[in-house]
Design a protein around this nucleic acid. Structure first.
Lengths: 112, 112
DNA sequence: TAATAATGTCGTAAAAATACGTCATAAAAG
DNA sequence: CTTTTATGACGTATTTTTACGACATTATTA
């Protein structure tokens, strides 16, 4: 019985981990990077930029969309995806705060 | 044939993603946080702090150790784990750089 | 209107991550 | 020396993630 134990942790840690996890796949990093570089929230032809099938890319897009990091605006038969600036800023804050908390003072030594 | 396509991406993206991924589980975040708070690199009794079996905690520790984020120093029968300050700083730099790259100018609007 | 394009959804196969129990080993305690 | 203690390594069950093909649907195009 290998049940998922993730929900036994602090909500705070779960929440933070979920965002780190979202950035834990090169395809999703590539999507975010692409959307940031091609400032004109280009449509789903992001597929052509990635070595993956359209279906798989769509799946990664959905993951990012579910977390709110990107949003898609339908224009006719096409869909324009773009970064959700507010959420991206919140993401930076969240991850930055965590990273900022795991530092040690310079005078600290492990093997003393 | 669902082969892993991760290696088809830029080394750069793969590398960055691997670090985000390492932080993508609450247990690993809890371990890092614990090591940072209890400044005295306490031994593997981190297990008592987590709702997981010792074996599983050990597995998470190994993951962090393999990435170099923490290091374990054997002292007799016990092992002192602690943050690898240099690597943690490098981690912050790496993730920070990526996050810094995915911003958009304020005057940018998706649905224009 | 018929054919083509662009997407999202569903089902599913394969791979990876999680989670433990059990063993083996080395050191500390008794 | 024998018994705990503290760990790491192995094997494996379950869950999750990753990756696609096949369809269905809605707009363009011809």
């Amino acid at each position: 019985m290998t049940t998922a134990k993730v929900e036994l942790f602090d909500d705070d840690l779960q929440h933070t981990a979920s965002y780190f996890k979202a950035l834990g796949h090169p395809a999703r990093l590539a999507i975010l990077k692409y959307l940031a570089e091609s400032k004109s929230c280009i449509s789903g032809d992001i597929t052509n930029e990635l070595p993956l099938s359209r279906t798989t890319v769509n799946q990664h897009l959905s993951e990012l969309k579910n977390l709110g990091l990107i949003k898609g605006t339908t224009q006719g038969a096409k869909v324009n995806y773009c970064l959700n600036t507010e959420k991206v800023m919140a993401l930076k804050q969240l991850l930055g705060d965590f990273l900022g908390a795991i530092t040690l003072p310079d005078n600290f030594s492990c093997n003393k």
